[in-house]
Design a protein around this nucleic acid. Structure first.
Length: 862
RNA sequence: GCGGGCGUGGCGUAAUGGUAGCCGCAACGGACUUAAAAUCCGUAGGAAGAAAUUCCGUGGGGGUUCGAAUCCCCCCGCCCGCACCA
């Protein structure tokens, strides 16, 4: 009976080889079966997988294997988000070419992922830096141009003067370039934009249909899109002498009801009016420079005091010729939102209040609680505005109206006078996709001095990246390349220049899921394949992509539909955002981080294993190299096996929460693999296939079948931790039965069934162990080709229930009765219990609540 | 500032209106062993009690209900997202 210890080092590679050779996971379109497309967010090939990858891909793998066992035709692909700056940094710092760096990393990580035993269709693998991928990206960009989804325009960007490149906002830290440390400048550059704002309304309203997305993510997208309904209107302007200017000032507001409370106007420092006046006004010019110098970091913007500079021009109040509002350039007005100009109503807006207080501007209350004539202004603005509880005052024809009515009236009068109209505004900006980088997809256009911008003809795609580039000087290597950019215009054939910017890598990841449907097609997406496989049924990834990647992908799907490449409404039917992997950190008294493996307990305190130096706990944090609390998946897989790592990642903690890696927990998972191996060995050694059944065997069968039912339900709902708790219970029940004193043929039959179920249920989580156990139980077929166990209704049905008996809501006793026993009988039985009679002690029963099969509550006095 | 989430044994957690603490980790006692590991059996929220049993207990306070970890209101604490968006 004594089984050999389960040896994952032999077993895991053996079954991986088997799955590969039998092409177990290669997916083919098959209309006769329901399809299921499960996808985890594909990795950036940094060089090594980390525990976060292990968790992410394990979850997806469990779903893929489970759905497959349930009869679905499953697509579970893998690829590489392979363009981006780390590859260029490696080139600059270590002299390796981005291409070789990337493909070597891919090879290393592919090997690691394969060692996890993932049920992936590797035949569909691609990297976004493959010309065979990005050629289609280029072709679609040209389609997008034709469909009027692309714009080239000048915009303000973060410019790193040392590295000579544009930086994303995230790459600007405290106003300095994250790599060079140089103070970032704002520059106006011609950039390519995708018109995501054209879909702002649609992207917002369609969120309601994404009922299988986390509420949190939908909310984040909603806030990001930031729809607001307001009024855009134009003030007439006059100069200091009272002379009317030709140009008016157009502003945007959502509080047009407060127009009679206006005491000033403010424009962004970058507003055309401010620029114009700066030409003849030193103060304004200086102010503009100061605002520009403030930098772009959020921290600076947040801390900056509200400041302004009078422009010396005035706005005429649209409804009151006696009122003239001074106009300021102000640092808190954003050029990118609305019109870059506002009117200020200090009595009812915090920012306007701050500004008016500083510059001694009038504060005119115009909204007050109903019935109160003098609005309650202490040292703060009055911000209530909803409902009928507050009304307009001091506002001529608006007096007495509530806020909504006043807005409608102002909007009507503005419209009638041709001064303005109601307008919906979005916070969402168009997507700037130009990057002055080498390692990205070349933007397939040519600049011709005669023909202007000319798309590269599709027959000439892909526009491939040149390989002979150098990284010895700052800036874009494509720009410095001696010949690459010099081409003839595709239209007039005269000398012209290629676009040297490349795409934002978020474009690459915005449609990769669709490419997986037909990875090798000669067009971006094969129609039959995409109609069969798309949308993705289950998408899994980190919540850090809640906005950018997921919003871009939703937009891209719509753009691809418009250009005839796709026929779906949304790319990801169901979204799951998993938590991070966290780990304890340790540090010395001087604050240096120490590897957890170097920390040992001595006399109840943590000390450094070799030096003996005392250590303090630094808190449980996301695994990061800087805090030295990373655990290398290779090490774990080598010592415990992939199954153990997978099992641990799913145990105990709900998948959406952060999971703490602990050595003890990993050992616990490892012990469980050994326990299963022992149990299955013992079961395999039982002789009988008997169908006879005794009481004990029946009890075990009930447990087996109920476990199948609950685990199935849990896996359908991604409740891996609960499924695992139930599998532990089944294993414990098997263990009990095996040690039972009165073992019999009858019990052996139930044991064999329980063992088979145990193996099949844990197979999605621990696939290698499952195959080995399955074979040991004498099965000829592989688990991967088999079916999910079926429950027998009769064994899952309950005929007796234990119900609690309460007195006044407190549990006093319990009793076991036949399922479905009627109320009257339950009442009688409950009142007859010794404990209950004693507790009631002659008190009069007021009423009895009976919840069938659950609980009896006897309500009595006292 | 605005929006969202969370708070349960020593720890991760389960129970989403119906017996609070399933399952796991750590711990303790015992068996086996020359010994250790592994394994197996057992104990385990707090308090009182020899025990039966009783009382208390899901961050704090209040409410709804026959019954609340769960629903509602207020407060405290922690976490996340957005942030001068007019």
């Amino acid at each position: 009976m004594a089984a050999e210890r389960y040896n994952h080092r032999e077993v895991e590679p053996k079954w991986q080889k088997f799955w590969t050779e039998s092409k177990s996971f290669e997916a083919k379109e098959d209309v006769s079966r329901p399809k299921y497309y499960v996808l985890e967010m594909f990795p950036y090939p940094s060089g090594r997988i980390h525990m976060g990858h292990v968790r992410n891909y394990t979850m997806g793998d469990v779903i893929a294997r489970f759905r497959r066992a349930c009869g679905y035709n499953v697509l579970h692909p893998m690829g590489w988000d392979a363009f981006g700056m780390p590859a260029e940094n490696a080139a600059i710092e270590r002299g390796v070419h981005p291409k070789s760096w990337t493909y070597e990393n891919i090879a290393a990580m592919r090997k690691q992922l394969k060692s996890m035993g993932l049920a992936i269709d590797w035949s569909r693998e691609f990297a976004t830096c493959d010309p065979s991928y990005y050629r289609h990206e280029q072709a679609m960009f040209i389609d997008f141009m034709d469909a009027n989804l692309v714009e080239r325009r000048v915009s303000l960007v973060n410019w790193d003067p040392v590295d000579q490149t544009v930086l994303a906002n995230e790459q600007v830290i405290d106003g300095k370039g994250w790599r060079s440390g140089a103070v970032v400048e704002k520059r106006e550059l011609a950039q390519w934009f995708l018109k995501i704002t054209a879909y702002a309304d649609e992207l917002l309203s369609a969120l309601d249909g994404l009922d299988k997305w986390p509420e949190k993510v939908r909310l984040m997208q909603k806030n990001w899109i930031g729809r607001s309904e307001g009024l855009r209107f134009t003030f007439d302007l006059e100069d200091a002498a009272g002379k009317k200017r030709d140009q008016g000032l157009t502003v945007y507001t959502t509080r047009h009801d407060t127009i009679f409370g206006a005491s000033f106007c403010a424009v962004s420092a970058d507003h055309p009016l401010a620029k114009e006046i700066a030409e003849s006004n030193e103060d304004v010019a200086t102010f503009r420079k100061e605002v520009a110098a403030l930098g772009t970091s959020e921290e600076n913007i947040e801390r900056a005091e509200k400041r302004g500079c009078a422009l010396g021009v005035f706005a005429r109040h649209p409804f009151d010729p006696n009122v003239k509002l001074p106009i300021y350039a102000a640092n808190f007005v954003l050029m990118g939102y609305g019109e870059g100009a506002i009117f200020g109503c200090p009595a009812h807006d915090q920012r306007d209040w701050d500004f008016a207080t500083k510059y001694n501007l009038p504060i005119l209350p115009v909204v007050a609680p109903r019935g109160i004539i003098s609005p309650p202004l202490g040292d703060a603005p009055y911000l209530d505005k909803d409902g009928d509880e507050c009304v307009l005052v001091n506002s001529q024809f608006l007096d007495g109206m509530n806020v909504e009515q006043a807005k409608a009236e102002v909007a009507k009068r503005m419209k009638d006078s041709g001064r303005g109209e109601v307008r919906v505004n979005f916070r969402l900006r168009d997507w700037g996709v130009s990057r002055q980088r080498y390692w990205g997809c070349p933007i397939p256009v040519v600049h011709c001095k005669d023909c202007g911008i000319v798309p590269v003809p599709k027959s000439q795609l892909p526009v491939e990246l040149p390989e002979d580039v150098t990284f010895d000087k700052p800036g874009n290597p494509l720009l410095h390349h001696p010949t690459w950019k010099h081409v003839n215009c595709p239209k007039c054939n005269e000398p012209a220049e290629r676009e040297t910017d490349t795409f934002d890598t978020f474009i690459d990841s915005s449609w990769y899921y669709a490419r997986f449907a037909s990875s090798h097609a000669s067009i971006p997406v094969d129609q039959d394949a995409s109609k069969y496989w798309l949308p993705v049924d289950q998408y899994i990834g980190g919540v850090e992509h809640a906005i950018l990647h997921l919003l871009y992908s939703r937009f891209y799907a719509r753009a691809m539909v418009k250009t005839g490449h796709l026929q779906i409404k949304e790319p990801f039917e169901s979204l799951f955002t998993q938590g991070m992997v966290i780990h304890e950190t340790f540090r010395t008294k001087s604050g240096e981080w120490v590897l957890p493996s170097d920390a040992v307990t001595k006399d109840g305190a943590w000390v450094h294993g070799s030096s003996g130096e005392p250590l303090e706990l630094g808190g449980v944090e996301k695994m990061s190299k800087s805090k030295k609390n990373v655990v290398d998946p290779d090490t774990i897989i080598a010592s415990y096996g992939a199954d153990t790592a997978r099992w641990f990642m799913l145990s105990d903690t709900p998948p959406e929460r952060d999971i703490q890696w602990t050595e003890a927990g990993a050992e616990g998972s490892w012990r469980f693999t050994q326990k299963i191996w022992r149990l299955v060995n013992d079961i395999a050694a039982t002789p009988s296939q008997s169908v006879s059944m005794n009481e004990q065997g029946l009890a075990l069968r009930r447990i087996s079948h109920r476990t199948v039912a609950t685990v199935t339900d849990d896996l359908n709902n991604l409740r891996f931790n609960r499924a695992i708790a139930r599998i532990y219970e089944l294993a414990n029940a098997i263990s009990q039965s095996l040690q039972s004193a009165n073992k019999s043929d009858a019990l052996d039959g139930a044991l064999r069934e329980a063992g088979s179920f145990l193996v099949l249920l844990m197979a999605p989580m621990m696939p290698h162990l499952a195959e080995e156990c399955w074979k040991l139980l004498g099965h000829k077929s592989a688990v991967v080709d088999g079916n999910w166990p079926k429950v027998e209704a009769g064994l899952v049905a309950v005929d007796e229930v234990t119900i609690a008996v309460q007195i006044n809501g407190k549990r006093r006793d319990e009793m076991t009765v036949a399922k479905g026993l009627d109320r009257g009988a339950v009442e009688v039985a409950a009142l007859a219990l010794d404990t209950i009679m004693r507790q009631l002690d002659g008190k009069s029963v007021k009423k009895i609540i009976v919840v069938p099969d659950r609980i009896v509550n006897i309500v009595c006095e006292g």
